[in-house]
Design a protein around this nucleic acid. Sequence first.
DNA 1: TTTTGAGTTGTTCGA
DNA 2: GTCGAACAACTCAAA
Length: 470
Amino acid sequence: MQVKAVSIHWFRQDLRLEDNEALSTACEQGLVLPIYILDDVNAGIFKIGGASRVWLHHSLQSLNKSLNGKLSVYIGNPLDILFELSQKYSISNIYWNRCYEPWQIKRDTKIKKTLIEHGMSVNTYNSLLLWEPWEVLKSDGTPYKVFTPFYRNGCLNSKTPRFPLSIPTNLSLMNDTENHLTIDNLNLLPHTPWDKELVKQYKIGEECAKLKLEDFIYKGLNSYKDGRNYPEKPNISRLSPHLHFGEISPNTIWHSVRKIGNNDNIDTFCSELGWREFSYNLLYHNPDLPTVNFQAKFDKFPWSIDKQILSKWHKGQTGIPIVDAGMRELWQTGFMHNRVRMIVGSFLIKNLMLDWREGERWFFNCLFDADLASNSASWQWIAGCGADAAPYYRIFNPVLQGQKFDNNGNYTRHYVPELALLPDKYLFNPWEASEEALKAANVKLGDNYPNPIVNLKLSRDKALAAFKSL
DNA sequence: TTTTGAGTTGTTCGA
DNA sequence: GTCGAACAACTCAAA
Protein backbone atom coordinates (compact mmCIF):
# COMPACT_ATOMS: atom_id res chain seq x y z
CA MET A 1 0.00 0.00 0.00
CA GLN A 2 1.26 3.45 -0.88
CA VAL A 3 2.16 5.62 2.07
CA LYS A 4 0.18 8.84 1.93
CA ALA A 5 1.55 12.20 2.88
CA VAL A 6 -0.65 14.30 5.05
CA SER A 7 0.71 17.66 3.93
CA ILE A 8 2.78 19.53 1.38
CA HIS A 9 5.31 22.07 2.62
CA TRP A 10 6.06 24.51 -0.15
CA PHE A 11 9.55 25.99 0.42
CA ARG A 12 10.02 29.52 -0.90
CA GLN A 13 12.17 32.06 0.96
CA ASP A 14 12.49 29.80 3.98
CA LEU A 15 15.20 27.35 2.90
CA ARG A 16 15.85 26.04 6.41
CA LEU A 17 14.56 23.62 9.02
CA GLU A 18 15.09 25.72 12.14
CA ASP A 19 12.51 28.36 13.08
CA ASN A 20 10.32 27.41 10.15
CA GLU A 21 6.81 27.73 11.49
CA ALA A 22 4.99 26.30 8.47
CA LEU A 23 7.29 23.29 8.28
CA SER A 24 7.16 22.62 12.01
CA THR A 25 3.37 22.78 12.02
CA ALA A 26 3.11 20.54 8.97
CA CYS A 27 5.38 18.00 10.65
CA GLU A 28 3.07 17.84 13.65
CA GLN A 29 0.35 16.54 11.31
CA GLY A 30 2.39 13.60 10.00
CA LEU A 31 4.14 12.73 6.75
CA VAL A 32 5.21 15.77 4.70
CA LEU A 33 6.02 16.17 1.00
CA PRO A 34 8.57 19.04 0.80
CA ILE A 35 8.72 20.87 -2.52
CA TYR A 36 10.35 23.85 -4.21
CA ILE A 37 8.93 25.51 -7.34
CA LEU A 38 10.97 27.77 -9.59
CA ASP A 39 8.38 30.32 -10.65
CA ASP A 40 9.52 32.65 -13.40
CA VAL A 41 6.00 32.71 -14.83
CA ASN A 42 4.30 34.89 -12.25
CA ALA A 43 7.39 36.92 -11.36
CA GLY A 44 7.49 38.77 -14.70
CA ILE A 45 10.14 41.49 -14.60
CA PHE A 46 10.85 40.70 -10.96
CA LYS A 47 12.14 37.19 -11.56
CA ILE A 48 15.32 36.51 -9.64
CA GLY A 49 18.60 37.77 -11.04
CA GLY A 50 21.69 35.95 -12.25
CA ALA A 51 23.72 35.97 -9.07
CA SER A 52 20.74 35.05 -6.91
CA ARG A 53 20.06 32.02 -9.10
CA VAL A 54 23.53 30.73 -8.39
CA TRP A 55 23.03 31.18 -4.66
CA LEU A 56 19.61 29.55 -4.87
CA HIS A 57 21.08 26.52 -6.63
CA HIS A 58 23.53 25.88 -3.81
CA SER A 59 21.02 26.72 -1.12
CA LEU A 60 18.59 24.16 -2.54
CA GLN A 61 21.35 21.55 -2.66
CA SER A 62 22.06 22.22 0.98
CA LEU A 63 18.40 22.07 1.93
CA ASN A 64 17.92 18.83 0.01
CA LYS A 65 20.79 17.34 1.96
CA SER A 66 19.18 18.36 5.26
CA LEU A 67 15.98 16.70 4.02
CA ASN A 68 17.83 13.46 3.23
CA GLY A 69 17.36 13.99 -0.48
CA LYS A 70 13.59 14.19 -0.18
CA LEU A 71 13.12 17.65 -1.69
CA SER A 72 11.08 17.52 -4.90
CA VAL A 73 11.63 20.42 -7.28
CA TYR A 74 9.55 21.81 -10.12
CA ILE A 75 9.49 24.56 -12.71
CA GLY A 76 6.26 26.26 -13.66
CA ASN A 77 3.06 27.70 -12.32
CA PRO A 78 2.71 26.84 -8.62
CA LEU A 79 -1.08 26.65 -8.73
CA ASP A 80 -1.01 23.91 -11.37
CA ILE A 81 1.78 22.04 -9.63
CA LEU A 82 0.21 22.18 -6.18
CA PHE A 83 -3.13 21.14 -7.57
CA GLU A 84 -1.69 18.19 -9.48
CA LEU A 85 0.32 17.00 -6.51
CA SER A 86 -2.58 17.21 -4.14
CA GLN A 87 -4.71 15.17 -6.54
CA LYS A 88 -1.99 12.61 -7.22
CA TYR A 89 -1.24 11.92 -3.57
CA SER A 90 -4.62 12.83 -2.11
CA ILE A 91 -3.11 15.58 0.00
CA SER A 92 -5.45 18.19 1.34
CA ASN A 93 -3.19 20.25 3.60
CA ILE A 94 -0.84 22.80 2.11
CA TYR A 95 1.68 24.76 4.21
CA TRP A 96 3.87 27.70 3.36
CA ASN A 97 5.50 30.74 4.91
CA ARG A 98 4.29 34.04 3.53
CA CYS A 99 6.21 36.10 0.98
CA TYR A 100 5.66 39.83 0.63
CA GLU A 101 6.59 40.98 -2.85
CA PRO A 102 3.50 42.33 -4.62
CA TRP A 103 3.54 39.70 -7.38
CA GLN A 104 3.92 36.95 -4.78
CA ILE A 105 1.02 38.26 -2.72
CA LYS A 106 -1.17 38.37 -5.84
CA ARG A 107 -0.17 34.84 -6.84
CA ASP A 108 -0.49 33.34 -3.38
CA THR A 109 -3.87 34.94 -2.74
CA LYS A 110 -5.20 33.35 -5.91
CA ILE A 111 -3.67 29.96 -5.10
CA LYS A 112 -5.06 29.98 -1.59
CA LYS A 113 -8.53 30.91 -2.79
CA THR A 114 -8.56 28.25 -5.51
CA LEU A 115 -7.26 25.48 -3.29
CA ILE A 116 -9.75 26.30 -0.56
CA GLU A 117 -12.55 26.25 -3.15
CA HIS A 118 -11.45 22.71 -3.94
CA GLY A 119 -11.82 21.69 -0.34
CA MET A 120 -8.20 21.92 0.69
CA SER A 121 -6.77 23.54 3.77
CA VAL A 122 -4.09 26.17 3.23
CA ASN A 123 -1.99 27.17 6.23
CA THR A 124 0.35 30.14 6.02
CA TYR A 125 2.79 31.59 8.55
CA ASN A 126 5.33 34.35 8.99
CA SER A 127 8.91 33.16 8.97
CA LEU A 128 10.47 36.01 6.97
CA LEU A 129 9.77 39.15 8.98
CA LEU A 130 9.87 40.16 12.64
CA TRP A 131 6.62 42.11 12.34
CA GLU A 132 3.87 41.80 9.75
CA PRO A 133 3.67 44.85 7.46
CA TRP A 134 -0.06 45.21 8.05
CA GLU A 135 0.44 45.23 11.80
CA VAL A 136 2.97 48.07 12.01
CA LEU A 137 0.85 51.14 11.41
CA LYS A 138 0.42 54.60 12.92
CA SER A 139 -2.39 55.13 15.39
CA ASP A 140 -4.56 56.46 12.56
CA GLY A 141 -4.15 53.16 10.74
CA THR A 142 -1.95 54.43 7.92
CA PRO A 143 1.60 53.23 7.25
CA TYR A 144 4.72 55.02 8.50
CA LYS A 145 6.86 57.08 6.15
CA VAL A 146 9.72 57.89 8.52
CA PHE A 147 12.06 55.26 9.83
CA THR A 148 12.62 56.34 13.43
CA PRO A 149 8.98 56.41 14.56
CA PHE A 150 8.33 53.27 12.49
CA TYR A 151 11.07 51.43 14.33
CA ARG A 152 10.76 52.91 17.82
CA ASN A 153 7.02 53.17 18.16
CA GLY A 154 5.80 50.81 15.49
CA CYS A 155 8.21 47.93 16.09
CA LEU A 156 10.01 48.16 19.42
CA ASN A 157 6.92 49.27 21.33
CA SER A 158 4.79 46.46 19.90
CA LYS A 159 5.10 42.78 20.59
CA THR A 160 8.45 41.02 20.97
CA PRO A 161 9.34 39.02 17.86
CA ARG A 162 8.57 35.30 18.18
CA PHE A 163 11.35 33.27 19.78
CA PRO A 164 12.88 30.91 17.22
CA LEU A 165 11.48 27.40 16.95
CA SER A 166 13.88 24.47 17.01
CA ILE A 167 14.35 22.03 14.14
CA PRO A 168 11.37 19.65 13.99
CA THR A 169 12.30 16.38 15.68
CA ASN A 170 9.43 14.53 14.06
CA LEU A 171 10.56 15.14 10.49
CA SER A 172 8.85 12.45 8.45
CA LEU A 173 9.23 13.02 4.74
CA MET A 174 8.30 11.58 1.39
CA ASN A 175 9.17 12.69 -2.11
CA ASP A 176 7.32 12.74 -5.41
CA THR A 177 8.73 9.57 -6.95
CA GLU A 178 7.18 10.26 -10.33
CA ASN A 179 8.99 13.58 -10.64
CA HIS A 180 12.45 13.18 -12.12
CA LEU A 181 13.43 16.84 -12.18
CA THR A 182 16.61 17.53 -10.21
CA ILE A 183 18.00 20.78 -8.84
CA ASP A 184 20.47 20.78 -11.74
CA ASN A 185 17.53 20.67 -14.14
CA LEU A 186 16.30 24.01 -12.80
CA ASN A 187 19.17 25.50 -14.84
CA LEU A 188 19.99 28.04 -12.18
CA LEU A 189 23.70 27.97 -12.97
CA PRO A 190 24.99 30.02 -15.92
CA HIS A 191 26.18 28.43 -19.17
CA THR A 192 29.48 30.28 -19.03
CA PRO A 193 30.97 29.33 -15.69
CA TRP A 194 31.46 32.78 -14.20
CA ASP A 195 29.93 31.52 -10.98
CA LYS A 196 32.82 29.25 -9.95
CA GLU A 197 35.12 31.94 -8.59
CA LEU A 198 32.28 33.76 -6.88
CA VAL A 199 30.89 30.73 -5.10
CA LYS A 200 34.30 29.70 -3.79
CA GLN A 201 34.18 32.73 -1.50
CA TYR A 202 31.01 31.58 0.27
CA LYS A 203 29.59 28.80 2.31
CA ILE A 204 25.93 28.49 1.44
CA GLY A 205 23.12 26.89 3.40
CA GLU A 206 21.47 26.82 6.78
CA GLU A 207 24.33 25.44 8.85
CA CYS A 208 26.81 27.90 7.37
CA ALA A 209 24.44 30.79 7.99
CA LYS A 210 24.24 29.84 11.66
CA LEU A 211 28.02 29.60 11.91
CA LYS A 212 28.38 32.96 10.21
CA LEU A 213 26.05 34.53 12.76
CA GLU A 214 28.05 33.07 15.64
CA ASP A 215 31.28 34.20 14.04
CA PHE A 216 29.92 37.73 13.64
CA ILE A 217 28.72 37.87 17.23
CA TYR A 218 32.16 36.75 18.37
CA LYS A 219 34.31 38.88 16.06
CA GLY A 220 32.30 41.72 14.55
CA LEU A 221 29.51 42.84 16.84
CA ASN A 222 31.73 44.40 19.50
CA SER A 223 32.68 47.33 17.31
CA TYR A 224 29.75 47.15 14.92
CA LYS A 225 28.45 50.70 15.30
CA ASP A 226 31.65 52.30 14.12
CA GLY A 227 33.34 49.45 12.27
CA ARG A 228 30.37 48.84 9.96
CA ASN A 229 31.32 51.96 8.04
CA TYR A 230 34.74 50.69 7.01
CA PRO A 231 34.66 48.32 4.03
CA GLU A 232 37.96 46.79 5.01
CA LYS A 233 36.96 45.93 8.59
CA PRO A 234 35.38 42.60 9.57
CA ASN A 235 32.55 44.21 11.53
CA ILE A 236 29.61 43.49 9.24
CA SER A 237 27.59 40.30 9.47
CA ARG A 238 27.35 39.48 5.74
CA LEU A 239 24.18 37.59 6.56
CA SER A 240 22.07 39.33 3.91
CA PRO A 241 22.02 36.57 1.25
CA HIS A 242 21.29 33.92 3.88
CA LEU A 243 18.51 36.09 5.22
CA HIS A 244 17.04 36.73 1.78
CA PHE A 245 16.69 33.04 1.01
CA GLY A 246 15.61 32.25 4.52
CA GLU A 247 18.57 30.04 5.41
CA ILE A 248 18.35 31.87 8.71
CA SER A 249 15.39 33.72 10.15
CA PRO A 250 15.41 37.32 11.36
CA ASN A 251 14.05 35.97 14.66
CA THR A 252 17.09 33.76 15.15
CA ILE A 253 19.38 36.71 14.48
CA TRP A 254 17.36 39.12 16.62
CA HIS A 255 17.19 36.91 19.70
CA SER A 256 20.78 35.62 19.38
CA VAL A 257 21.96 39.20 19.56
CA ARG A 258 19.38 40.48 22.05
CA LYS A 259 20.20 37.84 24.62
CA ILE A 260 23.75 39.18 24.86
CA GLY A 261 22.47 42.37 26.41
CA ASN A 262 22.08 46.02 25.58
CA ASN A 263 24.66 48.36 24.14
CA ASP A 264 25.08 50.72 21.21
CA ASN A 265 26.56 48.06 18.96
CA ILE A 266 23.69 45.68 19.54
CA ASP A 267 21.08 48.40 19.16
CA THR A 268 22.63 49.59 15.90
CA PHE A 269 22.78 46.07 14.53
CA CYS A 270 19.14 45.43 15.46
CA SER A 271 18.12 48.70 13.85
CA GLU A 272 19.57 47.37 10.60
CA LEU A 273 17.10 44.52 10.85
CA GLY A 274 14.60 47.31 11.49
CA TRP A 275 15.56 48.87 8.16
CA ARG A 276 14.84 45.56 6.48
CA GLU A 277 11.41 45.58 8.11
CA PHE A 278 10.88 49.18 7.02
CA SER A 279 11.70 48.27 3.41
CA TYR A 280 9.22 45.40 3.44
CA ASN A 281 6.62 47.63 5.05
CA LEU A 282 7.13 50.29 2.38
CA LEU A 283 6.92 47.74 -0.42
CA TYR A 284 3.81 46.14 1.03
CA HIS A 285 1.98 49.45 1.26
CA ASN A 286 3.46 50.80 -1.99
CA PRO A 287 3.55 47.96 -4.51
CA ASP A 288 5.02 50.28 -7.16
CA LEU A 289 8.09 51.03 -5.05
CA PRO A 290 10.48 49.14 -7.41
CA THR A 291 9.47 51.18 -10.45
CA VAL A 292 7.83 54.47 -9.42
CA ASN A 293 9.26 57.42 -7.49
CA PHE A 294 7.83 57.37 -3.97
CA GLN A 295 7.79 61.17 -4.14
CA ALA A 296 5.89 62.06 -7.29
CA LYS A 297 7.69 65.37 -7.79
CA PHE A 298 10.70 63.37 -8.98
CA ASP A 299 8.73 62.16 -12.00
CA LYS A 300 9.88 65.22 -13.89
CA PHE A 301 13.52 64.95 -12.92
CA PRO A 302 15.76 65.32 -16.00
CA TRP A 303 17.65 62.00 -15.80
CA SER A 304 20.41 61.62 -18.33
CA ILE A 305 20.45 58.58 -20.61
CA ASP A 306 23.95 57.54 -21.62
CA LYS A 307 24.55 53.84 -22.18
CA GLN A 308 28.32 54.25 -22.47
CA ILE A 309 28.63 56.07 -19.19
CA LEU A 310 26.32 53.54 -17.53
CA SER A 311 28.48 50.74 -18.88
CA LYS A 312 31.59 52.30 -17.36
CA TRP A 313 29.83 52.43 -14.02
CA HIS A 314 28.85 48.75 -14.42
CA LYS A 315 32.41 47.72 -15.15
CA GLY A 316 34.12 49.82 -12.49
CA GLN A 317 35.87 52.01 -15.07
CA THR A 318 34.70 55.44 -13.96
CA GLY A 319 38.14 56.75 -13.03
CA ILE A 320 36.91 57.40 -9.47
CA PRO A 321 38.85 54.83 -7.42
CA ILE A 322 36.45 54.15 -4.54
CA VAL A 323 33.54 53.86 -6.99
CA ASP A 324 35.46 51.47 -9.22
CA ALA A 325 36.52 49.43 -6.19
CA GLY A 326 32.90 49.01 -5.15
CA MET A 327 31.62 48.10 -8.59
CA ARG A 328 34.41 45.58 -9.01
CA GLU A 329 33.73 44.11 -5.59
CA LEU A 330 30.15 43.55 -6.73
CA TRP A 331 31.23 41.92 -9.98
CA GLN A 332 33.89 39.74 -8.40
CA THR A 333 32.09 38.70 -5.22
CA GLY A 334 28.34 39.21 -5.69
CA PHE A 335 28.40 41.50 -2.66
CA MET A 336 29.18 45.14 -1.93
CA HIS A 337 29.83 46.74 1.42
CA ASN A 338 26.96 48.99 2.50
CA ARG A 339 29.08 52.13 2.83
CA VAL A 340 30.30 51.63 -0.73
CA ARG A 341 26.78 50.91 -1.99
CA MET A 342 25.87 54.41 -0.85
CA ILE A 343 28.94 55.91 -2.50
CA VAL A 344 28.42 54.24 -5.90
CA GLY A 345 24.68 54.97 -5.71
CA SER A 346 25.17 58.62 -4.94
CA PHE A 347 27.73 58.81 -7.75
CA LEU A 348 25.40 57.20 -10.31
CA ILE A 349 22.53 59.50 -9.45
CA LYS A 350 24.10 62.77 -8.42
CA ASN A 351 27.29 62.88 -10.46
CA LEU A 352 26.31 60.90 -13.56
CA MET A 353 22.64 61.98 -13.22
CA LEU A 354 21.51 58.53 -14.35
CA ASP A 355 18.13 57.15 -13.30
CA TRP A 356 18.17 55.26 -9.97
CA ARG A 357 16.29 52.41 -11.64
CA GLU A 358 19.40 51.66 -13.70
CA GLY A 359 21.37 51.13 -10.51
CA GLU A 360 18.55 49.15 -8.98
CA ARG A 361 18.42 46.82 -11.99
CA TRP A 362 22.19 46.21 -11.98
CA PHE A 363 22.27 45.51 -8.25
CA PHE A 364 19.28 43.21 -8.52
CA ASN A 365 21.07 41.13 -11.11
CA CYS A 366 24.54 41.09 -9.55
CA LEU A 367 23.93 40.82 -5.81
CA PHE A 368 23.67 37.50 -4.03
CA ASP A 369 21.50 39.28 -1.48
CA ALA A 370 19.27 40.92 -4.13
CA ASP A 371 16.00 41.59 -2.39
CA LEU A 372 13.19 43.49 -4.07
CA ALA A 373 12.13 45.34 -0.92
CA SER A 374 15.57 46.35 0.38
CA ASN A 375 16.95 47.11 -3.05
CA SER A 376 14.16 49.36 -4.23
CA ALA A 377 13.75 51.14 -0.89
CA SER A 378 17.50 51.78 -0.68
CA TRP A 379 17.84 53.07 -4.23
CA GLN A 380 14.91 55.40 -3.69
CA TRP A 381 16.53 56.54 -0.48
CA ILE A 382 19.89 57.42 -2.01
CA ALA A 383 18.19 59.04 -5.01
CA GLY A 384 16.31 61.30 -2.62
CA CYS A 385 12.90 60.31 -4.01
CA GLY A 386 12.14 57.67 -1.37
CA ALA A 387 10.54 57.61 2.05
CA ASP A 388 12.54 59.47 4.69
CA ALA A 389 15.15 60.01 1.99
CA ALA A 390 18.50 61.75 2.05
CA PRO A 391 18.04 65.47 1.31
CA TYR A 392 19.09 66.38 -2.21
CA TYR A 393 22.05 68.45 -1.08
CA ARG A 394 23.53 65.48 0.71
CA ILE A 395 25.84 64.43 -2.10
CA PHE A 396 28.66 62.07 -1.25
CA ASN A 397 32.12 63.20 -2.28
CA PRO A 398 33.80 59.93 -3.33
CA VAL A 399 37.27 61.32 -2.63
CA LEU A 400 36.44 62.32 0.94
CA GLN A 401 34.47 59.14 1.52
CA GLY A 402 37.44 57.08 0.41
CA GLN A 403 39.87 59.01 2.58
CA LYS A 404 37.56 58.75 5.54
CA PHE A 405 36.26 55.17 5.36
CA ASP A 406 39.09 53.43 3.51
CA ASN A 407 41.74 55.44 5.31
CA ASN A 408 44.56 52.95 4.82
CA GLY A 409 43.47 52.27 1.24
CA ASN A 410 43.42 48.51 1.66
CA TYR A 411 39.97 48.07 0.16
CA THR A 412 40.59 50.29 -2.85
CA ARG A 413 44.03 48.85 -3.52
CA HIS A 414 42.60 45.34 -3.43
CA TYR A 415 39.97 45.97 -6.10
CA VAL A 416 41.87 48.59 -8.09
CA PRO A 417 45.35 47.07 -8.10
CA GLU A 418 46.51 49.30 -10.94
CA LEU A 419 46.61 52.12 -8.36
CA ALA A 420 48.17 50.08 -5.58
CA LEU A 421 51.52 51.89 -5.65
CA LEU A 422 50.02 55.35 -5.36
CA PRO A 423 50.55 56.98 -1.96
CA ASP A 424 47.45 57.38 0.24
CA LYS A 425 47.37 61.07 -0.55
CA TYR A 426 46.48 60.43 -4.21
CA LEU A 427 44.83 57.03 -4.06
CA PHE A 428 41.32 58.45 -4.19
CA ASN A 429 42.06 61.33 -6.56
CA PRO A 430 44.84 60.24 -8.95
CA TRP A 431 43.95 63.03 -11.36
CA GLU A 432 45.37 65.49 -8.85
CA ALA A 433 48.70 63.69 -8.52
CA SER A 434 51.82 65.13 -10.09
CA GLU A 435 53.40 63.57 -13.19
CA GLU A 436 56.24 62.27 -11.04
CA ALA A 437 53.93 60.70 -8.45
CA LEU A 438 51.94 58.94 -11.18
CA LYS A 439 55.07 57.78 -12.93
CA ALA A 440 56.58 56.45 -9.72
CA ALA A 441 53.41 54.42 -9.14
CA ASN A 442 53.33 53.18 -12.73
CA VAL A 443 49.95 54.83 -13.31
CA LYS A 444 49.16 56.24 -16.75
CA LEU A 445 45.80 57.97 -16.63
CA GLY A 446 43.79 57.30 -19.75
CA ASP A 447 45.95 54.25 -20.35
CA ASN A 448 46.13 51.72 -17.52
CA TYR A 449 43.52 53.55 -15.43
CA PRO A 450 40.79 55.83 -16.80
CA ASN A 451 40.55 59.55 -16.40
CA PRO A 452 37.47 60.47 -14.35
CA ILE A 453 34.36 60.25 -16.55
CA VAL A 454 32.94 63.36 -14.87
CA ASN A 455 34.28 66.37 -13.05
CA LEU A 456 33.13 65.84 -9.48
CA LYS A 457 32.69 69.50 -8.63
CA LEU A 458 30.89 70.51 -11.82
CA SER A 459 28.58 67.50 -11.83
CA ARG A 460 27.78 68.09 -8.16
CA ASP A 461 26.77 71.69 -8.87
CA LYS A 462 24.68 70.59 -11.84
CA ALA A 463 22.87 67.97 -9.77
CA LEU A 464 22.28 70.46 -6.94
CA ALA A 465 20.67 72.85 -9.41
CA ALA A 466 18.51 70.11 -10.94
CA PHE A 467 17.34 68.82 -7.57
CA LYS A 468 16.71 72.33 -6.30
CA SER A 469 14.47 73.06 -9.28
CA LEU A 470 12.08 70.32 -8.12
C1' DT B 1 -7.43 70.62 14.63
C1' DT B 2 -3.36 72.71 15.73
C1' DT B 3 1.02 72.75 17.27
C1' DT B 4 5.50 71.24 18.05
C1' DG B 5 9.61 68.70 17.60
C1' DA B 6 12.25 65.84 14.87
C1' DG B 7 14.24 63.76 10.86
C1' DT B 8 20.48 57.09 9.10
C1' DT B 9 24.60 57.35 6.79
C1' DG B 10 27.21 64.68 4.00
C1' DT B 11 29.88 68.64 2.18
C1' DT B 12 31.45 73.16 1.89
C1' DC B 13 32.48 77.54 3.43
C1' DG B 14 34.11 80.94 6.30
C1' DA B 15 35.35 82.48 10.85
C1' DG C 1 43.29 72.73 11.70
C1' DT C 2 38.69 73.04 13.83
C1' DC C 3 34.05 74.23 14.28
C1' DG C 4 29.41 75.72 13.41
C1' DA C 5 26.31 77.15 10.06
C1' DA C 6 24.21 76.78 5.68
C1' DC C 7 22.34 73.92 2.35
C1' DA C 8 16.13 75.17 2.30
C1' DA C 9 12.50 74.75 4.01
C1' DC C 10 9.35 70.46 4.32
C1' DT C 11 6.95 66.55 5.85
C1' DC C 12 5.79 63.51 9.19
C1' DA C 13 4.32 61.81 13.77
C1' DA C 14 2.26 62.44 17.89
C1' DA C 15 0.51 65.01 21.63
